Amino acid sequence: MKKIFFCTYMCLAFNTLFSQNPEDILTNLNFPTSLTIIGDDLYFSQIDGSINKIDITESNPNISSVATGFSTILALANDGSSLYITENGAGEISSYNLNDSSSSTLINNLSDPRGLGVYQNKLYYAEWLNGTISEINISSPSSPNTIISSSLGYTPILINGSKLYYSSHFENNISVIDLAQPNPVPSVVVSVPSNLFGLAMIGDELFFSQESGKVSKIDVTENSPAIEDVITDLGSNNPYGMVSSGDDLYVALSTTGKIIRYSTNNNLSTTEFESTDNVLVYPNPVNNKLIIESSDTISKVIVINQIGQRVITSNTSEINLSTLENGFYMLIIHNEFGSITKKIFKN
């Protein structure tokens, strides 16, 4: 009887896990617009010109103030030590040094600057009213070079490796150029049904947020990629900036003042590991410290509670569960080949 109850209970928990995706990680924000990731820190801007950050490994992250006083931020980018900021209201792009908290204007007199990206000490930016995408040298930003020119307004930019993906609000397509080429030629990747606000990449999948209230994706390795909707019913003009970290996609929902997290790794099967017997989790039941042993290197462990919320994210094989309430939990254990799940009970 106990075994039947346990199996039924855990099946319900698995179903709840799926229904909880995506999940709110921040609420009650002031029109969040753009996102960027450095390590475990998610930086986000709000319409009031402020930049804040959270630690995405925390189950209930605290918001830390980074900087204030900017003018209508619509895009953020980083090179690991500095943030780059489009000040749409001022027609400027600024830099903010995270080491000494100093800021400076890189370039001004821009026509409605929007998308941003960094590649090999160069900053790429889109101007909506000019219909251009240009590059500047971060060390000497006085001489911009226009690489794409059109009469249409470009908004999101995503740089993945040497590839720069971009979209126009009026062309309704996503195009790409290779920045490693001396004279890059644009090519259309896919036509899209509505205007886009954000782009993000996970593996070979390109995600994009649409004005129609959807987040969709394509496989960029396909010649004629099919569009698959992954998040729907977010509301008109709602999903704005996006960024990825590992298997997770973060989306700013501007009009509802939220940032959500969508896990793209919903395959909880054990086939990716050589054998589930290669992974040992003990003690189980557990009081405080949980130990994971595996013949493969563990890259990440996610602890999910009974209502599908991520309560702990760790990259170590020893996890402190002392702060969790008693009850059943699921572990999603990742390595370079894939992931498996394990069930545990916390005493």
Rank of each mutant, 00 (worst) to 15 (best):
S139E: 15
D248P: 00
N284S: 07
F273D: 01
I304P: 01
E58W: 07
S65E: 12
L164R: 09
L17I: 09
L98F: 04
I136H: 05
N60Y: 11
L76K: 04
T221L: 14
A90P: 04
N30E: 11
P184M: 11
A77D: 15
V118Y: 02
A126W: 01
G69S: 06
S263G: 09
D233Q: 11
I148R: 00
I136Q: 05
I159Q: 08
G327L: 04
N109T: 03
S94T: 04
L199F: 13
G39S: 14
A90M: 07
P141V: 02
D219M: 03
V220L: 04
S168H: 07
L42M: 11
P193R: 11
G117N: 05
N21K: 01
A252V: 09
N195A: 14
T313V: 15
S82T: 14
N265T: 03
S314E: 09
S299H: 08
S322H: 02
Y329L: 06
V279R: 00
V215P: 06
V311D: 08
D55L: 07
S81D: 08
L98C: 05
T132Y: 01
M201T: 08
P22V: 05
D112Y: 13
N335K: 02
A67F: 03
S191M: 10
N109R: 00
P22A: 03
T57Q: 14
I133Y: 05
S275H: 06
T341M: 05
N335R: 01
T323S: 10
D48V: 03
K346C: 04
I227Q: 09
L234A: 13
I312Y: 09
P285N: 04
N266E: 09
